[in-house]
Design a protein around this nucleic acid. Sequence first.
DNA 1: ACATTAAAGGGGT
DNA 2: ACCCCTTTAATGT
Length: 239
Amino acid sequence: MDKSKFLSRIDLFQKLSTEELMQIEPIAPMNTIKKGTIIASPQHGGKLLYLVKSGMVRLYKLSEGGKELTVDLLRVGHIFGEIGSFTISSENMYAEAWEDCVICTINKPQFEQLMREKPELALHFIEIISTRLKEVEEMMEHMAYGSVRKRLLYLLHKLSEKFGSGFSMGENEDTDRKWIELEVKLTHQELASMMGSIRETVTEQLTELAAEGIVSKEGQRKPLRVHPERLKMAWDACR
DNA sequence: ACATTAAAGGGGT
DNA sequence: ACCCCTTTAATGT
């Protein structure tokens, strides 16, 4: 089994609450980052903690062949980076501005002072790390042994939890209300990179799922929609 | 890997 | 603002 598949995961980080953000923001320099900019990389090594204030950040690793493995997509309130031995993500991680972003940075002295002044925050950081561990284990379990279809179903489920929004197509509320729209711009390539598969396979599988009424899309570069109930049925059916 | 198609961008009117 | 053309990115096989 390809080792990189084990690294795929989603929703790694728990968000900070708005109150906690208020506590941190005053001491953290804020930067506007343009879409596509690399915010942090293994080379930087600049021991900083980053906090997403707006926009979306993509975390990824590079595999041997230089292929990108998307590890997570972060939004407002998510944190990433490392300071000294305090590491929120694994090492060798790249962070890219997926959209135009506003990012706050915290250095080690600031971070340590903050932890002393606000023990609740320190506790929350511990929770975040624990949650991450749990998520990693759960994702490993699902990505390690399942078929591509099963992994894709699971990924779609996680994505709809994280990015899903209620959605209605029109008059027929009873059936239409059941669709969830994923509020992220995800290409087949992206999905593949999150589940340790290849683009072609994802395309193929998505076409199947669309035929089964589990997913739908209006067109290229349009948001993907999933039908949670049918998704669950399909999931139950393939074990 | 190649072919197709849809969408974004740029220039001119 | 609108139309048309070029270019690029996404998808399909």
